[in-house]
Design a protein around this nucleic acid. Structure first.
Lengths: 125, 125
DNA sequence: TTATCACTTGAAGTCTGCTCTAAGTCAATT
DNA sequence: AATTGACTTAGAGCAGACTTCAAGTGATAA
């Protein structure tokens, strides 16, 4: 697959894909004779995974570390698992915090609704 | 309250507090004769609210807009409510996305555990 | 009185994560 | 043969959100 195909399929710009490769988040992608990137199915799955993690706020550094270990093979399984569980913890923490914020927002919005209702009643008296 | 007291209480650096004031997210804080910031209880509540929203990823721009409207008074109630409900929608969206990511992470970690278990069994044969 | 300390300012610097530009290559169509 | 269009590169630029710096003020403790 060419960069633009992957870009469309994964909804990620070509610039970002090249950027990810440059910083080592993606491996060196296979090229055609003319030097054009040719992404494999596995590359696509990797990209989807990265996109998912990034959209949830997982830092590029952590992902890069994980991907690097993955390329290093079997011996790094423990280390990879550790990264994933760490990131899971961060995620859970963030989720709780956001839940708390959502509660506060809900209450605030409710108060706005109450106030507006009262105003209307005042007008219709 | 001085900037350092607020800084400690709200767990936000003095630099950030000054920065927030400079960009208009916080109002011009009352000063002592010698020009030192003197935060009120209301200021503190505002700061706590901002901190909460920021930690959930609400953009400074949206908060600034909200705070500006708040200072403009009663006539801006509708507009303020709109901002809050918009931000709530963003939050809910993000929460769902993160939940999805968490599921994927959980599955991936599970697979690591399975594999490791199998390896152990292999060794103990 | 001098040193210390918390505060002040405006501006520059930093970090993360892209995003864009300029200049060029290559393959395919007109 | 020339044009089109998708690709390539290195490197610059940008947005958001701080963070640090340099230089200065003003109150208080030794």
């Amino acid at each position: 697959m060419t960069i633009s195909e992957v870009s469309k399929e994964c909804n990620i710009t070509a610039d970002t894909l090249r950027y990810y490769e440059r910083i080592g988040l993606l491996p060196a992608i296979h090229r055609t004779q003319s030097g054009i990137r040719d992404y494999s199915e596995a590359d696509c799955r990797t990209i989807s995974f990265i996109k998912c993690m990034r959209s949830a706020g997982v830092q590029i550094d952590a992902l890069t570390e994980y991907m690097t270990l993955l390329r290093e093979g079997e011996g790094t399984r423990q280390a990879r698992k550790k990264i994933l569980t760490e990131q899971r913890e961060h995620l859970v923490e963030k989720l709780l915090e956001m839940q708390k914020t959502l509660d506060i927002l809900n209450k605030k919005i409710e108060r706005y609704e109450d106030k507006m209702l009262k105003c209307e009643q005042e007008i219709n008296k």
